[in-house]
Structures are given as C-alpha cells and as structure tokens.
C-alpha cells in the first residue's frame, strides 16, 4: 500500500483556485519529486499535505489514516514533518535550541540524544555551531539546520520544499546527498524542487505540476530524458 496517497485534491486561496484536482502516490521508503515552474502549485500541495491549507475537495491518506481534516500539529504524531520553503529556522534561538524544538513532542530522552548525535554526524558544521544564533548561519547551514530540526522529530515522512533554493552547486550536492542518506534509513521523502535535474537524479518517481494540475508523471530517469521536460526545466 502506498505510504502517502493524495486523491483528487482541490485547494483554493479565497476564490483563487490553486490546485484543481491533483492525485499522486508515494510508496513507502521512496523518494518522489514534484517539479514545476514558479507558481505551479508545488508549495500549495505540500501545505495542503501538512494541514496548513484546507481541502475544498478530495482526500489525503497516510497509510490508512485519512488526514484530510488534520490540524498542522496533529501530523507530527503521525510521523510527518514538513521542511518549509525558505528554511524558516528560529532565527533568534541558538542552533541547539532549534534542534530541541524539532523534538518538541518527544519524551524519550535516550533515543532523543541518539537522534541528535545522528543529525550532528550528518551535518558536522552544525556541531561546530551549536551555540551560535541560528539567524547568523549561512544559507547552506540554515538549510542543514532546517532538515536537522525536522529529523529530530524522528519522522517516517519528510516533506521538503525546495531545499536547494539559493544554494551554491556544491552545497546543493551536499544537501541532496544527505537526503539520500536519510532516505536509506527508511524515511519516505517527498521532494518539491525547481532544480528538476538534481531532483530527478535522486528520486525514483516524479510528477510535473503545471497550473495546478499534474501535467506529466513517470519514472524519474525517463522523465529526465523526456524532450518536453528538457526544454522546459533542464535547459
């Protein structure tokens, strides 16, 4: 059974229709990417998934739980965590406190410190800067912190919104490598990207969003070869 199943969702901002009937599936333990141009509705889709936006029609299932009407804070206990667009770390708190906030709902101290260790191993630059105010981190470090903070909740599903935004190519590679690593531990990843080339390299399956509709879908490697996509997104 699919881990995430989105069935024909319609999302509106007031009267403006942003998503007009989107359906997709993410298998357990997969990396699936959602690509598309600016304003296609990628962020809207993720926000609908994580309960920030309500659905006008359609449904979202995680495993066999219908989460269509969940409030955002109810998703963490279901193992879903959202790394929002533009990182949005807690700029005035220290790096350490940011990580602690990620584990807000957890009580298992021993497990928690193990996970913290795991995050700091994955991003050694964060370990060097534990006491630094998060707002003073570089863009790349902030992205690492945002992912690290999300991992502190020990998720089964990671929703990533444009983790490569504004990063130098070297850093993009680093971040994407860490996504692969995270995925290897069994975490299902839903990756929203404009950097279609990179995203299709690490994903197994991809969806192309256009004007609030799925325009195209397929196995990632094949999408990467698709002429239309090459023209539109890969340049």
């Amino acid at each position: 059974m699919a881990h995430i199943e989105v069935d024909d969702i319609h999302v509106y901002y007031g009267n403006i229709r942003a998503l007009q009937g989107i359906s997709f599936k993410v298998e357990k333990g997969a990396i699936v990417t959602l690509i598309g141009a600016n304003g296609a509705g990628k962020t809207t889709t993720l926000n609908a998934l994580s309960g920030i936006l309500g659905l006008r029609e359609g449904s979202i299932h995680i495993g066999d739980t219908n989460i269509s009407d969940f409030m955002p804070h109810q998703l963490i206990p279901k193992g879903i965590v959202h790394v929002p667009e533009g990182r949005r770390i807690f700029a005035r708190l220290s790096v350490d406190d940011n990580l602690a906030m990620g584990a807000f709902t957890r009580n298992d101290k021993a497990e928690l410190s193990k996970d913290r260790e795991y995050v700091l191993e994955m991003f050694p630059r964060l370990r060097e800067r534990l006491d630094q105010t998060a707002g003073t981190l570089s863009g790349g470090e902030q992205q690492m912190l945002a992912i690290g903070r999300a991992l502190m909740s020990k998720p089964d599903v990671l929703l990533l919104d444009e983790p490569s935004m504004g990063l130098a190519p070297v850093l993009v590679e680093q971040v994407f490598n860490s996504i692969i690593d995270i995925n290897k531990t069994g975490v299902t990843c839903m990756l929203v990207e404009q950097n279609a080339y990179m995203a299709l390299q690490i994903a197994s399956y991809g969806y192309v969003l256009e004007g609030g509709r799925i325009a195209l879908e397929g196995v990632a490697q094949e999408l990467a070869k698709n002429e239309e996509i090459k023209k539109a997104y890969l340049g």
């Binding site: 920030i52 804070h73 963490i76 807690f90 406190d97 906030m101 807000f104 709902t105 909740s153």
Partner: peptide, 24 residues
C-alpha cells in the same frame, strides 16, 4: 519548561511551531 519552549517557538514562527507539533 516545555510550555516555555513552545511559547518561544510560536513567538519566532507560528507556522513552523505548528508544523513541529505545537498546538497553537
């Protein structure tokens, strides 16, 4: 306390705080 941390989190960013499991 935990509540104190939750307050600080929503002071910094309500949406993200919620996404991390805080009942706003």
């Amino acid at each position: 306390s935990r509540l104190g941390r939750a307050w600080m989190a929503i002071r910094e960013d309500e949406d993200v705080g919620q996404a991390l499991g805080i009942n706003l």
